[in-house]
């Protein structure tokens, strides 16, 4: 059974013992987009014994540029990403356990979904889910690996409860402004997400093997300039999450989305009140679709969806009755 892993068993920092540890391990990948597909591919091939893949979205043609597990056939079949990922991973490694969870990862299901895992991999595309992962990981003492990528830059950090600083030591609160860069407005190179996802996967393996060589601090990369940098970060002695045990994102169970009956629309509420400049937002979005606005609201049309945004950050996404899809569009175009 170990023969299929012979090339990494012979690598002296893994060996047979390490391989058996990997085979006995359970990893959850939250979000299987550009980062998540790379992470899942590597961990499945490396023989991590059980992988749970969580995602709320469907495969679209524009995903294929960087989301390396998916095919045109998945787009034609309108497959959920978690389901499509698991189908392809089964073809890659039929000897491990694979579980697809087609759901929005939120405060109502987070604890249940991570309770039995050994490690959490961040494949999300928004800050609010990462703050939630941080809370639930700290509460249940699960290590997690943050990764982020946009354009030609990316970042990785390991969060090991009781050992390293946490995500809120690095970023105290999610940004509230309406002009945050997203992959949909400034683009992303597939090598950026590829490198960041690969580094997240190897960090996960090191954490599972309890290696001393785990990345400490934060790694940033800029692949257009071919620059890799690391820097140290200190634990915040007053950190609400890792020092005080206040899990504000996990305890916030207010529904973020509401189905608007009969309108084929979903209302999406921001995590906290925002003060959005509609002219600035119109300027940013007009490259991506049809935009009109007045002082009360901004209306943005893209594909079959219309997103109506109010200055306090509230939005109505028309063209869908799927709350996960509405939140995903909100994260893509409006920010977090």
């Amino acid at each position: 059974m170990l023969s299929r892993y012979s090339r990494q068993v012979v690598y002296n920092r893994i060996g047979e013992k390490g391989q058996k540890t990997l085979l006995d391990s359970h990893a959850v990948i939250i979000g299987v987009g550009a980062l998540g597909t790379v992470i899942a591919n590597n961990l499945a091939r490396a023989g991590v014994g059980k992988l749970t893949i969580i995602d709320r979205d469907f495969v679209e043609l524009s995903n294929l540029q960087r989301q390396t597990l998916f095919t045109e056939e998945d787009v034609k079949n309108n497959l959920p990403k978690a389901e499509a990922a698991v189908r392809h991973l089964k073809e890659i490694n039929s000897e491990i356990q694979l579980e697809a969870v087609v759901a929005d990862f939120n405060a109502t299901n987070a604890e249940k979904l991570i309770r039995d895992v050994d490690i959490i991999l961040d494949g999300t595309d928004n800050f609010s889910t990462r703050f939630l992962i941080n809370d639930v990981a700290l509460k249940h003492k699960k290590p997690w690996v943050y990764g982020g990528a946009v354009a030609d830059t990316g970042m990785v950090m390991n969060i090991i409860p009781g050992v390293t600083p946490c995500f809120r030591c690095l970023i105290q609160d999610p940004p509230v402004s309406g002009h945050t860069q997203t992959c949909d407005t400034v683009g992303v190179l597939n090598s950026t997400t590829g490198i960041i996802g690969n580094i997240q996967a190897v960090e996960a393996i090191k954490i599972l093997l309890k290696s001393e060589a785990v990345l400490k601090g934060v790694l940033t990369i800029n692949i257009w300039q071919t620059e890799f940098d690391k820097f140290e970060i200190e634990q915040d002695k007053k950190c609400p999450a890792c020092q005080q045990g206040k899990y504000e994102f996990l305890n916030n169970r207010t529904p973020a989305t509401t189905l608007l009956c009969g309108q084929n629309s979903i209302q999406v509420l921001p995590q906290q009140n925002r003060d959005i400049s509609l002219p600035e937002m119109a300027n940013r979005l007009q490259k991506l679709g049809e935009v009109e606005y007045n002082r009360f609201l901004l209306r943005f049309k893209t594909d079959q969806y219309t997103i109506t945004v109010f200055p306090d950050g509230r939005a109505i996404v028309s063209g869908t009755e799927n709350p996960g899809k509405a939140r995903s569009l909100y994260a893509q175009y409006i920010g977090n």
Partner: peptide, 30 residues
């Protein structure tokens, strides 16, 4: 020096010779 300035004194954080100041963006795509 590795500590987020919101955990220090924000914009009023005092600086001295030998301090290391790191400035980087939030990156949340994926």
């Amino acid at each position: 020096n590795g500590t987020h300035i919101s955990h220090l004194n924000g914009l009023n954080t005092k600086l001295k010779a030998g301090d290391v100041v790191c400035i980087f963006p939030m990156i949340f795509g994926g």
